[in-house]
Amino acid sequence: MEKGKDEVFDAKVLYVEDEEDIREGIMEMLSRKIRDLHVATNGLEGLETFQVIAPDIVITDIRMPRMSGIEMARAIKQLKPNVQIIVTSAYSDINYFIESIDIGINQYVLKPVTRERLFMAIEKAAHIVNLQKQVNYQMDTIFKLHSAIDQSQSVVVIADENGVIQYVNKRYEEVTGYTQEEAKKLGLKIFQLSGNLVDLEEELKAMIAQGKVWKREYQTLRKNGEKYWEYASITPIKNEQGETISFVKVAEDITELRKVSEALVVSEQKHRNMIENLGEGIGVLDLTYSFIFANPALKTIFEQNDLEDVCLTDFVEKQDILKLKEQARLLQKTEKFQMGLGITTPTGRRKNLNLTITPQYDLNVHAV
């Protein structure tokens, strides 16, 4: 079937023909339908041109000087086996037919070449070329995705519809100690959480049975029995009919992060206890001068059981607050300042305080 009148073939084509009258006539026909057309006048020139432009389709005569179309086709197929080759042949060239099959020539168009037969052959070749390009693109995409997953610093596990592990990346092997072959041979399941985690396993199975994503932080075991902490999400993958066909688990080994977090909690509690037991009043204010934290000594000074979210301006004369704000505005990043400040407690008692004020900044050097 011939393509539509205004359509063109999106393929690079090399046309090889030694007879000038035939070549000019076919070129005129091809140039209307082919966006990227190249021409050679004999087999040797055709081979040289092929090596330069790497066309998708080659259309060639058989009998030509210097190098025949058959010889050229053989050389081209050795360079690029998937190239589509269309041979234009007279009935008297039928003796070349067996050799053409052996070489892997894709199509024959008998002379005299008609527009309909030629474009039917080209359309078929172009369709195959496009399919090859799609397959190559998909294979390249799959390779890139596989490489990205395999080199990921996250644990990645893929299991079948029954949860049996089919693939693990290198990070999984590093974290768990199990190789992919061991995981598959042992029939490990994505639902199995090493250690005494029966309740979590039941929760996981219930969630994925409903087609939901399961996320959890838990302690589990490596192959050697060592405990470690993992944060994982397991996602069911469905087909177009909504049926679960596989599962994907993405996880992080958070053991070291947990250790750091726990150490920070211990350190914070240690410093908090130290501050709580100091005889001097210590407090933290936000930018609105409301208390975020106050130790017992400061609460005693202000005669308050709780100062959290209480504003300093409730105790201080307006002119003193303005003085405090102006002094803070003039500070450089690492500076602190001292000043006297008079307060009035809820019982009406007037107290004069000596303050040492140090501004705190976030990572973006914004006062907090």
Rank of each mutant, 00 (worst) to 15 (best):
F293G: 03
F293C: 13
A294T: 05
A294I: 13
N295W: 11
P296G: 08
P296C: 01
P296Y: 08
P296Q: 12
A297L: 05
A297I: 05
A297S: 15
L298E: 14
L298Q: 04
L298K: 13
K299N: 15
T300G: 12
I301A: 12
I301E: 01
I301D: 07
I301Q: 12
I301Y: 06
F302N: 06
E303I: 08
Q304V: 14
Q304K: 09
Q304H: 13
N305V: 00
N305H: 06
D306A: 10
D306R: 08
D306G: 09
D306C: 11
D306N: 10
L307A: 00
E308V: 13
D309E: 04
D309W: 04
V310D: 01
V310N: 01
V310L: 02
C311N: 15
L312W: 03
L312Y: 02
T313S: 12
T313K: 05
T313W: 13
D314I: 02
D314Y: 06
D314N: 04
D314H: 11
F315E: 03
F315L: 13
V316G: 05
V316R: 03
E317Q: 03
E317Y: 06
E317L: 07
E317H: 04
E317S: 02
Q319A: 07
Q319C: 03
Q319K: 04
Q319P: 06
D320Q: 12
D320E: 15
I321Q: 06
I321C: 12
L322P: 02
L322T: 15
L322C: 02
K323G: 09
K323Q: 09
